[in-house]
Amino acid sequence: MAAEELKTGPLEYRTQEGQMGIMGFWIFLGAEVVLFATLFATYAVLFGRTADAPLPSELFEPGIVLVMTFLLLTSSFTCGLAIHEMRRGSVKGLILWMVITLALGLGFLGFEIYEFVHYAHEGATIQSSAFWSAFFILAGTHGLHVTLGIGWAILLLIQIKQRGLTNVTSRKFFIISLYWHFLDVIWIFIFTSVYLIGMVI
């Protein structure tokens, strides 16, 4: 692949820089999988070590967790639609679906903050026990990623307003879509192995 531009295919793949940037992001995502793996492993090892703090089965509620899961799942879907619109060449469609994605992401964050505050009121904080430390670090690291993703996407929305769809801006949006879908992948595992298993056991 020479440095010149391709004339067909999605904008983000037309230059070698774009292709390499996206490949680099896949490598970053591979590292993120391993980062979260260490947190999941810590959580799994410390499961049940609640000391004098409440048990997870006393605090986890299916309702709020399901709402959070559906918010994030839907936001992942709308983020996919945003990229679909981008590839059809529609800046308007891209911005519309991206804003919906961010609103859903903010909803998710709101519920997560409410949940954490609620747990703290019930006597489960990051200092309460080994189990709750592992829980808050795992869920909190995911929440931090969502927060960063929202800030990042807002900056990109400002940029696309100013510059329109180019090889560079579409590459940036494609990369944040990968990031956003990836956050949903991590949440699926938190939902399953933390909340559902926490409620079963």
Binding site: M1, G9, P10, Y13, Q16, Q19, I22, M23, W26, I27
Partner: peptide, 8 residues
């Protein structure tokens, strides 16, 4: 079309 082969 990503040109990244099997990397992802």
């Amino acid at each position: 079309s990503s040109g990244n082969g099997h990397v992802p």
